[in-house]
Every structure is written in C-alpha cells, then in structure tokens.
Write a protein that binds this DNA or RNA. Sequence first.
DNA 1: ACCATTCCGGTACAACGTACGAGAGGTGGG
DNA 2: CCCACCTCTCGTACGTTGTACCGGAATGGT
Lengths: 250, 250
Amino acid sequence: MTNSQPTPAPTDAERRLALLWDPPQPSGRGRKARLTLDEVVDAGTAVVHEAGLDGLSMRKVAAHLGVGAMTLYTYVPGRTELVDLMVDRAFAELDLPRAEQPWRTAMTRYAHEHRGLYLRHPWILQTNMWRLPLAPHVLDAEEAGLRILVAAGLPATQVVEVIGLVDTYVRGVARATVAEQSEGSESGLSNDDYWDSMSTFWTTYFDAERYPTMTRVWEAGGFDAGHASFDATLDRLLDGIELAIDRAAA
Amino acid sequence: MTNSQPTPAPTDAERRLALLWDPPQPSGRGRKARLTLDEVVDAGTAVVHEAGLDGLSMRKVAAHLGVGAMTLYTYVPGRTELVDLMVDRAFAELDLPRAEQPWRTAMTRYAHEHRGLYLRHPWILQTNMWRLPLAPHVLDAEEAGLRILVAAGLPATQVVEVIGLVDTYVRGVARATVAEQSEGSESGLSNDDYWDSMSTFWTTYFDAERYPTMTRVWEAGGFDAGHASFDATLDRLLDGIELAIDRAAA
DNA sequence: ACCATTCCGGTACAACGTACGAGAGGTGGG
DNA sequence: CCCACCTCTCGTACGTTGTACCGGAATGGT
C-alpha cells in the first residue's frame, strides 16, 4: 500500500537502516532542533536502566528530556528504531580484541567483553528480536569474532557457527547471572515475599520422588557453584574449538 | 503492603505456583463453569500460533472461546500466568530420553527434542522471562537432562552448568533458525520488501573495508551452510563434555 | 517580506491488562 | 420449596501504551 510512486519512496526498513548507518545530517533549513539524536538515545538508555525494557515508553523518554512525547518522532521513526539505536550504542562500548594475539587469548577477551556488556545492559537480552539489529557496532563485534577464528585457521564454513556458539554461550550465562541477581525484584515482588513463596514451593509442591536427580544434585551443592565457573566452561568450549581447528589443519 | 493478616493470604507468587502444580478442583458449589483451564490454555496456544506472543491478548483468547474478556480471569490470574501455563503445556510435549541409553545417545535425543519444541513453539523464545517458569514439565525436562549427565559420571558440581550449556546452545540454534524462516514476515513487512531493503543495505551501506573478514567468509559461503550442521556442532559440544567426564573419572 | 521547510507537541484513537461490581446460574440447609 | 450463599460471567471503565494527524512556531534562502 502507498508504495506506487515513481520516485522510490524509502521503505520502513530503509529508513531504519539509514538512521543506523547515516549521520542525521542537520540540513540547514527550517527550525533548529532542540535535541540531538544522541541525546534521545542517551535518554532512552537512561530510562531503560531504571525501568527495564518494558518500562521504556516514548512518553517517559520524552519526559526525561523535558519535551513532548511526539517530539521524539522527529528524531526516530518509532520505538523499535530507538531500541535498535540503543543496542548499537551499547555495542559501541565493546573493547574488541585485535587478532594479533593468540586466538585463545583473543577469544577469551571477546567473551569477557560481551559478558560485561550484557551485565551492564541486561535489557539487551530482553529485546525480543530474533537477531540483533543490523547495526554498525554490532557488525564490528561479529567481524572481530570472525577474524579471530579465521586467523586461528578455522575454515570459513565453520567460522560462523562457532562464533554463534560462543555468543550463545555468553548470552546464556549472562542471562542466568541476571536472573539470579534480580530474582523477585521484578513485578513489584519484594525479595522477602519471593523467597517465602520459594520455600513454600520447595516444602509444598516439590516432589523429591519425581525429581530424584535434581534433589541429589541440589544436596551435593550443584546449584550453588553456578557462575564462578564462567571461565572454566569457556575453556572447555575453546578446547572443542581447538579440536576443530586442529582437525581442519590436518 | 496489605500483608498483615493473621490468616496468611495467598501471595501472588503462591497463586501462580498453585495453578501450575494443583488441579483446579471444581469445588461443587456455585455456578457451573463453562470452560476448563485446559480449554483456556489451548485457546491461548492457538492464538499465539497465529499472532505470536505480542499478539496474544486476553481479548483475543476470550474471543477465540466465544466468551467475554473478563471471564478468563476466573481461570487465570492474569496474562503472565496464562503464558506460564502455556509454557508448561508445551514442555509436556517433550518425549524425554530415559537414562538407560548411552549418555551421548540420550543427550543427542534431549537436544533434538528441545530443538523440535522450540521450532514448533517459537513464541517460547519470545517469553522475556529470565528463566523458564517453575512448572512441572519444565522441571521434568531439567530432571531428565541432569539424570543423563549424572548417569554418565559427571560430578554434581558441573552437571548444572553443562546442562545449561546444552540448553543454551539449542535455544541459540533454534532462535537462529526461526529468524531465518520468518525474516521479514514480522511487523507487516512483505518478504519482497525485506529482501529489497536487504540488497539496498549490502550495496549502499555495507563497507567491505570495514568488514573484510565478513566479506571473505561470505564469499566462501560461510553464511550459507548454517543449520544443517546442528548435529556436527552438537557433537563438538558433546566432545567437550566427554572430556570433562573422563577428567572427572581419573 | 515572503515562503518553503523543518521542528514542536496537543489532541485523539485503537489496543492493551485488568479492577470493580452487578447480574446470572448453581448448591445446600431449613 | 425456598432462600441464602457461592461461583462464574462479563459490561463498563481506568490507566497506559504506540503513534497518526495537524496546526502552529521557528528558521534560512530568496
């Protein structure tokens, strides 16, 4: 609909990309802008930090800037695109490893940087997109990851899935860590209430006969250790990758 | 607040758990119920299949059942809890492996079952919860995974993180697969438009100098292979786990 | 001075989750 | 048999969301 002009009107998807990849170009003419795109994105990031992704509303962001809600739409086509921009800005924080280091060092650094990012910006894990936005700094990160693996000698056909594996691992651990930190703090549930109802669960509903292994693992403290072992598991992952590299070299 | 009655009023969290772990017990008295909890959950599942998790609204579910919107609140405290129940029902579909098989066979089966589940119910990947709900069939799945690893001889302290690693991998791959299938089909974007704007992106914005490795990997077809290699990567993962098991046995 | 162009933001609408309370339909006690 | 009580049903309504629309304000080029 509304797409039959001879002059190819910019698609939604194109405006989205343009915003991410082009400077806003102030264009001289017309009224001066009170705000910058950067300021809007900053405000969004500020709001999301204290209200979570669900609490990120255009009205709140606008209020945070002392501006009417609709004003934001001068800078950003909509909420979705604002989130994209926020993700891109967050990924810009990554201090990506250069490939000159030995690949295991670089890969470990890559993983740590990403984990730090997700712990600083847990809301990224809440963005329900199927994949991250096609944004410059996101691609920078992927480029860096690929470069490490290619430099290590992994064939191109495996490089993509392996970096995906590492990304996936890091996100999983970060998600678990965040979950543990803010257990009941969401949804207005006080921590006391949360743990009360948890113990209610264990005493009332949990059936040690239905879940014998869980029970045994719990008693052995298997659920406590948790995430001190990020590096240990990561090393195991890298072992697997090293194996693939060696296999490819032969 | 409002929590100082001598008779301990059921907390929100407790009602949530009760719904998942107790039968609704029809209680005899009063007006007959037109619906079953199961019917409500089924309707929810039906709606979510054609509208996605964002499109799952109480009004739509109610309409799908031919009842008023508020009627649902007799059966379910709110949308959140409905989703919890839907997740539990989905996890009930899993055909979990018994532990008598060799652990690699069992683990592969575990992974495949989960992958199938996520591909059949992609909306589960959209539930923004930090962890899956504490529901019977979800725990069944975790129990099965833990049992496989414990039977394989992995020490209890590592069992939890390893099953987490596998889960995380499966979810990551499933997410990528779904992403590929329904690329632009979301958000009312026709597929043609999507691929148009994609090619616009590659020709207009993508900078082969900024992303040399990506370019090379792309040219080598590294992005095509994709997810035929689910089993291959999984095997690599299991190799790593086997290594940990052997190390623990020594 | 005029005007095209751009930004600002109030109003408004549709859709959402759900609190409230009036009515409808059923059971048990008298 | 009837009434009291209990439960389910759902129309109405409130607050919140994203954002379409449009009139008005500000600015630069001519």
